[in-house]
């Protein structure tokens, strides 16, 4: 069974935030503007956050790490959603169904990583900025929660292409936008269950750790700590 996962090597990561912008462009995140951004309401499915240095293995102080949805195998958000608007599929991707979400924001409060986003308003793209939106990703309406999907629409496209060409999906055909962009080549993506995949090899590193492992959420985003 495929189990999609991501490895982020904090030793390579320079906190440049290319992943953040790549994600926002790919997934039609609206530009916020100063007021909205200062209210802490800008939508970004992956952001840079400070994680505890003992986890990152950095020198004293806080260490910055890209924080996408961890796609936990035991996702707190899925348990608490009253309407099954957030689900985990058989390949381990935690998905959000905006059309069903009632906007109670229980999932956002239950997520220990605070990586879920709420649409406080309808996104605004002053013309002609709307021309650049990606037709593969829907524009989320106001009042619903949204989150990182590991760019599942890309998987969908890759699968469609493979099926059209009558072959199996190749491992490198599908990566999320953040991984594709990362200039430090610090992000890896693939099937954690495939022992030959780069991501599984990286995940086996002695430097590997998961964020807040002690909570038992079993994230599928794995970090590699800094230092030797």
């Amino acid at each position: 069974m495929t189990r999609w996962g991501m490895v982020i090597d904090l030793d390579r990561c320079t906190a440049c935030q290319a992943c953040v912008v790549a994600c926002r462009v790919e997934n039609n995140a609206p530009p916020s503007g100063p007021e909205f951004a200062h209210q802490g309401r800008d939508i970004s499915w992956i952001r840079l956050g400070s994680i505890k240095h003992e986890e990152a293995g950095n020198r004293p102080g806080l260490s910055l790490a890209p924080l996408p949805c961890m796609h936990c195998e035991n996702p707190p958000c899925v348990h608490v959603c009253p309407t099954h608007a957030t689900t985990i599929d058989e390949e381990g991707m935690v998905a959000q169904v905006p059309a069903r979400c009632i906007g109670c924001r229980y999932c956002t409060t239950a997520c220990p990583y605070t990586v879920r986003q709420f649409n406080w308003r309808l996104g605004q793209w002053p013309a002609p900025l709307d021309q650049g939106r990606n037709p593969d990703v829907s524009i989320r309406p106001r009042g619903v929660v949204e989150k990182c999907t590991f760019c599942a629409h890309r998987l969908q496209r890759a699968r469609d292409r493979a099926r059209y060409e009558g072959r199996e999906l190749e491992p490198d055909e599908y990566v999320p936008a953040c991984v594709e962009s990362c200039p430090a080549e610090a992000m890896f993506f693939g099937d954690l269950d495939d022992p030959h995949s780069e991501v599984a090899r990286q995940a086996a590193s002695p430097r590997a750790f998961r964020l807040m492992e002690e909570l038992g959420t079993r994230p599928k985003v794995i970090y590699l700590s800094k230092g030797e």
């Binding site: 899925v78 348990h79 608490v80 959603c81 009253p82 309407t83 099954h84 608007a85 069903r100 979400c101 009632i102 906007g103 109670c104 924001r105 229980y106 709420f118 649409n119 309406p141 106001r142 009042g143 619903v144 929660v145």
Partner: peptide
Amino acid sequence: CVILDLGRPERALNVILYANGHSPLVWDV
């Protein structure tokens, strides 16, 4: 108050239509 808090109050009935028995909010309802 819960209805006020909802981002999409008009969908409140989804709690019953698509009830997730795991969710304490459904227990609450």
